[in-house]
Design a protein around this nucleic acid. Structure first.
Lengths: 330, 330
DNA sequence: TTGTACGCGTTATCAA
DNA sequence: TTGATAACGCGTACAA
């Protein structure tokens, strides 16, 4: 121990955390620092956490780390957290309620200061428990029914509406929507935006529901659309679902964009790769804002807006048009 | 505190960790458990870690969380770690040495039991320090010059050779390789495999070097290939680099696969999306194996192989052929 | 079978 | 300006 090596016990603590309150003799200070780096002394964050009752650690719950949209969010959150001295514990819930519950228990045992929740289930007892316990958390790209919850998201209804408008402007009348699971708030909101737009524009839109926010989910749901007369345009509730719809369309012998227009949501890297029209969401920004919001609450900063709605913009690519058009939302 | 609520102080500890050594009266046991869940008592992992000198926590260093190849590895590692009661702290190093050093310091202050290192720089003083200190770590998809290091990787030389063989079999004679940064072991090994194959097959291969393992890196390097007579086939050192090469080729007016054959490495989701011929690596398996290996070392299990070389197989897709051929490696 | 005492490595507080 | 003390919440050796 550095203390023994030198002479003093807890003076070390003072010099290492040079706060304005402390008043050290430069001489002592130097002596301590010398020994510290001679011995390569590293203060234990564990002991500090026990004493301070805060760990400077955040938990992050995501349904699937390998989902590129979520990966972007995780990256943004990790970087923002690290900038403020926080560390991120990553948890892959696979969107299973029991996994989510297990992870929350683990995180709380580990005394994390708060959690970022990007898992998607709408009816979520785990979240309700957190709220009841006053445990700090921020919801990312989802809601959970709490009026005062801290949330970072995009305007799903409005953005979904813009996609439909775009397709109609391109002359489509037989439009279909492959919705996300209705059990998720994001899925329900986008569907609602689609329905509003349909009503407003006086068209009818065929809706099928994917069982999950995945390529396979999109594929299975979209296959139903090709049984009779296929639509001329499909809006997938996110890019992965749109990708699945594309596979189904190809199997049905349709080519994009010649026989079929296709749109997605999130503007993941895959979207750019295949020229998919989609709604751009800045994933890293979303993660960073969520982490910042959580940390702000933890540090007792005044929080002006409990609900952050990030700007989203329609990005038109080859899948629905030949030239690039961008329109701002929110 | 649960103890006060009941009667006993540290008997709680005994019942909660029911080890063979302890001998509890069923009556007491039940009484404790009852109070525990009435009060929703959660033992503090922080205090336990301080006492036990182990945190059941692993650090994971990756250059870029949003890279799909790494995302798959992270996912596999997280799941495997969680299954064994370990938790993962994620660190995005951006492949900057100073970031890597900072993160290692943070992780060690936090007393993580070990680290998974997927960052790529070959000359890496940070790793040498870990080794000197006897700090447990596992290298993922890279090496670092330590003979006894624990490593999980694939056979880069052999796999790269197979890619070249495949292109030659398809009749290509003007083949180019967009290598990964020479400063990384993976880049150097794949290049070496390419050169060996070229010598063996009696052809010459033009080599350019990407400045980073990214789409942009691949794009910039590949542009040099189209100044004079372009090659008929390009092997990118990973899928991202291949994607960048594709962009450069398109700008030069070439179409894939008609004017140009293209191959990559890793079989990321993007590869399947655009029909890229590549070397398949099971990313989740790689992450899981790395985590398991590290934990095995931490728990004192006997380690039979310090170096795990995962099987890799060539996956031929539209970018180089019309029909699917698979060949096993290793 | 269970209670007591101590220490893990910090830092806040108080005394010197 | 700095040393001494206590406490954070747990596990364990020892005593009862």
């Amino acid at each position: 121990m550095a203390k023994a090596a030198l002479v003093h016990p807890s003076t070390v603590s003072r010099v290492l955390s040079d706060r304005p309150g402390h008043t050290l003799r430069p001489e002592t200070r130097a002596r301590v620092l010398a020994v510290v780096d001679r011995l390569g002394y590293r203060p234990s964050a564990v002991a500090r956490s026990l004493r301070l009752k805060r760990t400077l650690t955040l938990g992050m719950l995501v349904p699937d780390i390998a989902n590129t949209f979520l990966a972007g969010i995780i990256k943004g959150a990790e970087v923002a957290a690290h900038e403020r001295g926080y560390t991120l514990i990553l948890c892959n819930t696979a969107d299973l309620p029991e996994r989510e519950a297990t992870y929350i228990r683990v995180l709380r045992e580990r005394q994390v200061d708060g959690a970022l929740v990007a898992s998607t289930r709408a009816a979520d007892g785990t979240i309700d428990d957190l709220r009841d316990d006053g445990f700090p958390f921020v919801l990312v790209n989802r809601a959970a029914g709490g009026a005062d919850d801290l949330v970072v998201s995009v305007d799903n209804r409005r953005s979904a509406g813009l996609v439909i408008e775009h397709l109609v402007e391109r002359g489509h009348t037989r439009i279909a929507h492959v919705a996300g699971p209705r059990s998720t708030t994001t899925g329900a909101e986008r569907l609602s935006g689609v329905n509003d737009a349909a009503r407003r524009l006086g068209i009818s839109i065929e809706v099928v529901e994917a069982e999950s926010w995945s390529e396979v989910g999109g594929y299975r749901a979209a296959r139903q659309l090709f049984r009779d007369i296929p639509p001329t345009a499909i809006f997938g509730a996110n890019d992965l679902i749109a990708l699945g719809a594309l596979r189904a369309a190809r199997e049905a012998g349709l080519r994009m964009p010649d026989d079929l227009a296709l749109a997605g949501f999130n503007d993941t890297p895959e979207a750019a790769l295949i020229g998919l029209t989609t709604v751009h969401v800045d994933q890293e920004e979303m993660g960073a804002r969520a982490a910042s919001l959580l940390i702000a609450q933890l540090e007792g900063d005044v929080i002006t807006e409990r609900s952050v709605v990030l700007p989203a913009e329609l990005v038109v690519r080859d899948s629905t048009a030949r030239r690039l058009i961008q329109r701002r939302i929110a």
